[in-house]
Design a protein around this nucleic acid. Structure first.
Length: 574
RNA sequence: CGGGAAGUGGCUCAGUCUGGUAGAGCACAGCGUUCGGGACGCUGGGGCCGGAGGUUCGAAUCCUCUCUUCCCGACCA
């Protein structure tokens, strides 16, 4: 490919609209252009990088036994009515009417359509298991698209769906996908972790997220320093609480005036107790109903855990006015003793002895509060957020918190959709049974952004070789010099003939501009053809990541580079 | 949707406070000098200053409304 004929404009300056590095570099390097909020055009090199990810994903999905199909992006409301999601799904689902006034939507995901495919096509256990996938543009009308390709409204996703005849089979399908995902992200050359995750609104019994480690990640991961435990902070289990030495005698409940002291720290200080001796009572709205949540004073409530314990679809912190209007309870002085609304407790709270808590009366707290004797929660569970000070729930070692970008998510769905939509098959025993499903997504376009977040320097992108839109860039430093130009053209041709993806910079630009652009684009190998060719017949090979340079004789250059690339891709798992 | 910021050639911005009819750098086109880490000179094309209304002799600038974009929160690949 000749640079002079490629549709690309690079920019020295960072566009004002881009905040994160991948967005900035994708724009500066001329890979993408914004149409409007959350919608991007992929220019040739941006598309080339996207295709690299698609190809790896496709190869590994096929290798894992999945079959590629392509489903419509426009979907009829009827199917969504069947699954119950027409009502459940929020405004993120873009709905519209066609000319016959039929309700439709743009597919944000394809459980409904694929389940419809399965129930029409699959009738016998002999046809199972089957795993169907597609690579397609999804549309989600995000509340706040941001960070360029990281969270667009339109994005390219690989979504796969497995159908099995039995639980055992479904678990096997899940395991296969998990293995495939590990291979995919390894082949992409990314540093990533598979973590235990919340299964969210898609529902189902368990799931893993694949996280690319990068500072700009929107998620926080909890990773064990010594064993394999890794989880999303939303889901990370707190190590089981240990019962403290109960040398102190059980005290009686005493009401103490604590005027103006609403914060746990203030109350603790006033009472001369550590914060962990205070019961913190938070009031949440769970699907619109007020629920109090008890955690130790030095802990934070993890809303996702709360949502799961309560079995509701949405929880949010209730504001003070709402609480007062509905219950006449003064926020800051609320506690479990005699609390008139439903309340639940973190498991740690149940081990507290002689704790302090709000008295449900403005300006007063109670001391000597003891769980069991003084209050009984409706539910008890792990509700608090894990911190860096916690220990691994599996092995007890230290934990590390780190940021990650979610690039893949796999779920064991069970029969949520197949039951609702009546996707059944006849089993070997002649019985009609419901298929067991799993679903598996990869944010293909997000992988491109994540790769850049993880691989860049002050000069631009540093693509891992398997994802690079071009593997080599050949710079002709002196177009007017016949010998140099002849050498550069020859190298370009030989590399292409050897199956290398090469961009030939034949622009009439000064060397400095060419070097800068080559760095910005992140092409892994750069070959500079300049005076050296005339002097001693050599060209300079430079690795983008390490900056290491080697001089190669022109005659062998193409063959050596081609071999190097082949070897490197093989090492990456191709 | 709540909170914050910003809209001026393709990009980065100045000009707005104190109204007088639009500028710089980059990019683009031409010519010349340059040529191994984003050169320089000259010339040129390109902007109804996001939109609508208002105030005024006169509005990029003041007022009102509106649209859009970006950032922080709840959702998610």
């Amino acid at each position: 490919m000749r640079y002079s004929q490629l549709l690309i404009t690079t920019a020295k300056e960072t566009p004002a609209e881009a905040e994160v590095i991948s967005h900035q570099l994708l724009l500066r390097a001329g890979f993408i252009r914004k149409l409007t909020s959350g919608l991007y055009t992929y220019l040739p090199l941006g598309l080339a990088a996207l295709r690299k990810v698609e190809t790896i994903v496709r190869q590994e999905m096929n290798r894992a036994g999945a079959q590629e199909i392509l489903m419509p992006m426009v979907q009829p409301a009827d199917l969504w009515e069947e699954s119950g999601r027409w009502k459940q799904y929020g405004p993120e689902l873009l709905r519209f009417k066609d000319r016959h006034q039929r309700d439709c939507c743009l597919g944000p995901t394809h459980e409904e359509v694929v389940t419809d495919v399965a129930r029409r096509e699959v009738h016998s256990y002999r046809q199972l298991p089957v795993n169907l996938y597609q690579i397609q543009t999804k549309f989600r009308d995000e509340i706040r698209p941001r960070f360029g390709l990281m969270r667009g409204r339109e994005f390219v996703m690989k979504d796969a769906y497995s159908f099995d005849a039995s639980e055992v089979g479904a678990e096997e399908s899940y395991r296969k996908m998990r293995d495939a995902y590990n291979r995919i992200f390894k082949r992409c050359g990314l540093e990533f972790r598979a973590v235990e995750a919340d299964s969210g609104s898609i529902g189902g019994s368990f799931s893993h997220e694949f996280m690319v480690l990068a500072k700009t990640g929107e998620d926080t991961l909890v990773i064990c320093q010594s064993c394999d435990y890794a989880a999303n902070l939303e889901k990370a289990k707190a190590a089981p609480p240990v019962k403290p030495e109960s040398s102190a005698a059980i005290q009686d409940c005493v009401k103490v005036a604590t005027p103006g002291l609403k914060k746990v720290e203030k109350v603790a200080e006033f009472l001369g107790l550590p914060a962990q001796q205070v019961i913190k009572t938070m009031i949440y709205l769970a699907d619109g109903e007020l629920v109090a949540v008890l955690v130790r004073g030095d802990r934070e409530v993890q809303p996702v855990k709360l949502k799961n314990l309560l079995g509701v679809t949405d929880v949010e912190l209730a504001d003070d006015d709402t609480v007062w209007q509905k219950t006449k309870l003064p926020v800051g002085y609320i506690g479990p003793v005699g609390l008139p609304i439903k309340f639940v407790a973190d498991q740690e709270v149940m081990l507290m002895v002689n704790a302090a808590a709000g008295a449900n009366e403005k300006g007063f707290h109670l001391t000597g509060v003891n769980p069991g004797r003084d209050f009984t929660p409706a539910l008890i569970g792990d509700l608090r957020q894990v911190t860096a000070d916690d220990r691994c729930p599996l092995c007890g070692s230290a934990l590390r918190l780190t940021e990650g970008i979610e690039v893949g998510h796999i779920f064991k769905l069970g029969t949520k959709y197949s039951a609702a939509m009546n996707a059944t098959f006849q089993d070997a025993d002649g019985q009609e049974k419901i298929m067991i499903m799993g679903c598996y997504g990869i944010g293909v376009s997000r992988v491109v952004a994540a790769a850049i977040e993880q691989n860049h320097d002050a000069n631009g992108i540093i693509f891992p070789l398997p994802l690079a839109p071009m593997q080599v860039i050949v710079l002709n430093l002196d177009l007017k010099n016949a010998a140099v130009t002849a050498a550069a053209e020859q190298l370009h041709n030989e590399l292409e003939a050897a199956g290398v993806e090469v961009l030939y910079d034949d622009r009439d630009e000064r060397p400095g501009s060419k070097f800068k652009d080559a760095d910005l684009l992140g092409i892994p190998y750069r070959v500079t053809v300049g005076k050296g060719v005339e002097k001693d017949g050599t060209v300079e090979l430079r690795a983008r990541r390490s900056g290491a340079t080697t001089m190669l004789p022109l005659a062998q250059a193409a063959a050596e580079i081609a071999a190097k690339i082949k070897a490197e891709l093989a090492a990456a798992g191709e």
